[in-house]
Computed example of a mutant assay.
Amino acid sequence: MKYLHLIFTIVIFTGAIAQNEEPLLKVEGFSHPESVVFDEQNNVLYVSNMADDKDGDGFISKITPEGEILDLKWITGLNDPKGLLVHEDKLYVTDVTELVEMDLQKGEINRKIPVDGAMSLNDITVDAGGSIFFSDLEQSSIYFIPGEMAANSMRVDTPKGEIAEFLKSSKLNSPNGLLAHKDDLYAASWGENQDGNLLKIDMDTKEIFMVTEEGIGNLDGIQPSGKDFFYVSDWATGKIYSIDPNGNKTLVLTAEKSSGDILFLKEKNQLILPMNFQNSVWWYQLD
C-alpha cells in the first residue's frame, strides 16, 4: 500500500519556517519513494523505493546530501520497503511482513526476518539502549528487538536478537511514524478519517499519552527538531507541521499530497521529503 505524508515544523526556539513554499531542490527518477535516512558516518542518504505492485521490485537508493544519485538501485530484491534505520553498521528496512537487515559496506541483504502476525510494517527507530522498535499500521501495534541495554522489564520474555510484540492497542490509532526520544517512544498515528495525532508512549509502563488532541490528519513521518519539539508530516494534505511539548502545532510549509517519511538535517536546517506519487525527493531550506 502506498502511503504519502506531510510534515510538521516548530517555529518557537527550535523550529523554522521554510524560506518559501517552493522546494530548494527536486531530484527525479525514484519509484514511489517512502523514506529517507541519513548515514552520518558515510555522509550519504538512503531512500526506500516501494516501486510498483510486483513482489521483489522494491529497492534502496544511495544519494548524497546534496541530491546526487550515487546508485539508484543500490540494494534490490525487496517488496514494499518503507521505514529505514541506520544502526551499528547495518541498514534496516521494514518490508510488509519482514524486517530486513542489510550490510552498509557490501550493499547487500544480510537476512530477512519474518515478523509473526505482521500485516503492514512501517516506520522504525532505535532507543539509547539499542532496542529497535517498528510499527505495524494495520495491526495498530509496535514490535521490538531488545538491545543490550534494554530495561529488564523489556527483556524478560524476549531473548537477545528476537522479535516480540511490544504493544498492541486501539489507542495507537494505526501508528505510522516512530521516534525513540529520551525515555519515551513517539508515534505519529495514521488514524481514520484524517484524525491521526502525535502520541507519546512510556517505555516502562507502556502507557499512551496524546501530545496533540484535535486530530491533525494522516500522520506519517516524525523527526526531532530540538529539545522536545518535533516535525511531523501529514500524508493527506502535504502540510508540514512543528509540534511543541504542549501539543501546539505550527505550519512550516505545504508540499503536495504524498510526501512520505521525512528527514530533518539539523546542520543544514533542511527538511527532505520523499514524494511518493511524484517519484521524486524534495529539499526545503528552513529559515
Rank of each mutant, 00 (worst) to 15 (best):
D80F: 00
L85Q: 06
Y92F: 12
D57Y: 10
W74E: 03
V27W: 08
V86E: 04
G67Y: 09
I63N: 05
E28R: 11
T94D: 08
K82E: 00
A18S: 09
V93T: 14
H32D: 12
G56H: 06
H87V: 04
G29T: 11
E22K: 13
S35K: 02
T64L: 14
K26Q: 11
L25T: 10
H32S: 15
Q19G: 12
S35C: 13
A16N: 08
D80W: 00
L91D: 06
A51H: 10
F38E: 07
L91P: 01
M50H: 09
N43Q: 08
L78H: 09
V86G: 03
E21R: 05
V47D: 14
V27L: 13
Y92A: 02
N20L: 03
K62C: 02
K73Y: 06
D80S: 07
V37Q: 05
I69L: 13
F38D: 00
D39W: 11
V44E: 02
E88T: 08
K54Y: 15
Y46A: 12
F30V: 07
G29V: 14
N42S: 08
T14M: 10
L25V: 07
F59S: 09
S31E: 15
K82N: 01
Y46S: 07
M50V: 12
G83A: 06
I12V: 14
K90F: 12
H32N: 15
N43R: 12
E66S: 13
A18V: 08
S35R: 03
K62R: 09
D89F: 04
V27Y: 13
V86T: 02
F38K: 00
E88W: 00
Y46F: 15
V47T: 06
M50Q: 15
T64V: 08
A16D: 06
L24I: 01
E21C: 02
S48V: 07
D71N: 11
L45M: 07
F13M: 00
I69M: 10
H32K: 05
N20T: 12
V36D: 06
G77Q: 05
L84Q: 04
V37W: 04
K54I: 09
D80G: 00
N20M: 03
L78Q: 04
L84R: 07
T76N: 12
P23T: 04
S61W: 10
L25P: 08
M50E: 15
P65T: 04
L24T: 10
L25E: 10
N42W: 04
G58T: 04
L78P: 11
F13A: 01
D89A: 06
G67V: 02
A18G: 09
A51N: 13
L24D: 12
A51Y: 11
P65L: 01
E21Q: 07
V36H: 07
G77S: 07
K73S: 14
F38S: 02
L91S: 03
E40Y: 05
Q41H: 10
D57N: 13
E28G: 02
A16Q: 05
G15M: 06
L25W: 05
T14S: 12
H87N: 08
Q19S: 15
S31R: 11
T94P: 13
L24G: 10
L78N: 08
D80M: 03
G58F: 05
